[in-house]
Simulated scan of single mutants.
Amino acid sequence: MATEDNAENDIPFKVLQIFKDEKARPKVVRTYDVNIGWLAESRSPVITWRTVDELIEGGKTSAELKWRSKRHQVSLLDLRPKKSIAPRVPRAESRALPPQR
């Protein structure tokens, strides 16, 4: 297993923890779209970072994964949360202060 948790073809570490096996290769069997509901995934890809990104871009928010006889539902948004935006400095603090006399 790669040391970095974000190489495109790696299985997300959280998924390996859910299945309790670092050799797990879970497949996506269903996905959830807030506008439609649960849909069977015909191609059943292995859940990699690339798959997570593709599903999120396609409007999916959750997935049901299957590996061997185990099934688990995961939030794709929890696997790949949006990067937080750095908080803005309040305008009054962003200006240079006048010299102290």
Rank of each mutant, 00 (worst) to 15 (best):
K60Q: 05
T51I: 08
S75Q: 03
D53W: 02
E4M: 03
K20S: 11
G37M: 02
V28A: 06
L79M: 02
S42N: 12
Q73E: 11
V89I: 13
D53V: 08
N9D: 13
R88F: 08
S62K: 12
P12E: 03
W49N: 15
P45K: 10
R50I: 00
L39K: 15
I85L: 10
G59R: 02
S42V: 11
I18H: 04
A40R: 11
S69I: 08
D21S: 11
L39Q: 15
H72Q: 05
D78E: 14
V52T: 06
S69P: 00
E22K: 13
P99A: 12
D33F: 09
V15R: 00
D10T: 13
A96I: 15
P81Y: 07
G59E: 01
M1P: 10
L55V: 02
R68P: 01
R50D: 09
P98A: 09
A96K: 15
K83T: 13
P45E: 10
Y32E: 07
E93K: 13
L79N: 05
R91D: 10
L55T: 04
K66M: 10
R101Y: 14
I36M: 04
P87H: 05
S62W: 11
A40Y: 05
D5G: 15
Y32W: 08
P87R: 12
S69N: 10
P90M: 06
A63S: 09
T61I: 07
I47K: 00
S44W: 06
E4N: 12
P45M: 08
V46N: 04
K27E: 11
K83E: 14
K20F: 00
S62N: 09
D10H: 12
A24D: 01
K82D: 07
V46F: 04
K70M: 12
